[in-house]
Design a protein around this nucleic acid. Structure first.
Lengths: 141, 141
DNA sequence: TCAAAACTTGACCATTTTGGTCAGGTATGT
DNA sequence: ACATACCTGACCAAAATGGTCAAGTTTTGA
């Protein structure tokens, strides 16, 4: 059970972005240098963030990326969803409340995995980019 | 972020085992049939569960596996730990509170990942095999 | 006693996912 | 026109996943 680096990088990059956002567009090159993430890889990630309307792009010299929403309205859920970082505990479909592994009954631990998924997603739903920026400012000293 | 089938199977098998345990040792063959898990794979899993003293083995005809502890003392944490299903959110070492990616400072989202790990592990620490058996009995009707 | 049931061990392997790189673009400000 | 920065998609190596296969050893019941 681990977080992929795509999800982790996306959050790191957005926190970085949010800190400089209000002045100018932030170029991926800068984020790449500051966070130590490959520029090529960042481009893949931001392409998805853009499709999901989390950021806007500004082309040309002095261009870069800008947040497309209030940091308070960007939850971890949104970010992870954008880069296909999803929480998966079961293979059996949720909808089919019966018949998990081709069997007639629900698998005996089905409820458990559902609970777990909800538990994790709750965390993601409640945490916003705003929270992270605040927290970061405090810790920076 | 997903649960591996090794962890899932381990829990499923143990719940199954716990339900028949008090009468006789339960053979992997039976569990395999009931839960639809490959016998060979189950053997790998139970070998680890045994090393971690979660189950005991009884060889020979009519042999099988038996719980080695009270179901209430077997937490999900123990099971997952036994089969190497660990929660991993960061690569940077926890101990090195500074210098995450070869940088001088902690990575800006370090605290977040720590929080997340704790959040998930809390769930695992609190859930025991006993809870799952109860839950299962209730749902069976 | 001997065969069958069941545990034991470890090598092996195909497929998928991960975590990127590389090579080209295209748009735009100066 | 040129540098900067976004944009797109192909490609790839390595690791993890989810097993299978083979060859035992131990114990019991007939």
């Amino acid at each position: 059970m681990k977080l992929t680096s795509k999800g982790r990088y996306a959050v790191m990059a957005l926190v970085d972005l949010a800190r400089f956002d209000n002045i100018n567009p932030v170029s991926l090159r800068d984020i790449s240098l500051r966070q130590g993430i490959s520029l090529d890889y960042l481009e893949q990630i931001f392409s998805k963030l853009k499709k999901n309307e989390i950021v806007k792009s500004i082309r040309g010299t002095q261009g870069g990326y800008v947040l497309n929403k209030n940091p308070n309205d960007i939850k971890l859920t949104n970010i992870f969803h954008a880069v296909d970082e999803k929480v998966k505990t079961v293979q059996c479909k949720k909808e089919s409340k019966r018949g998990c592994n081709g069997k007639a009954t629900k698998c005996i631990t089905h409820n458990l995995w559902d609970e777990l998924e909800i538990h994790i997603n709750t965390f993601f739903d409640n945490k916003s980019l705003e929270d992270l920026i605040k927290n970061n400012k405090e810790t920076r000293v």
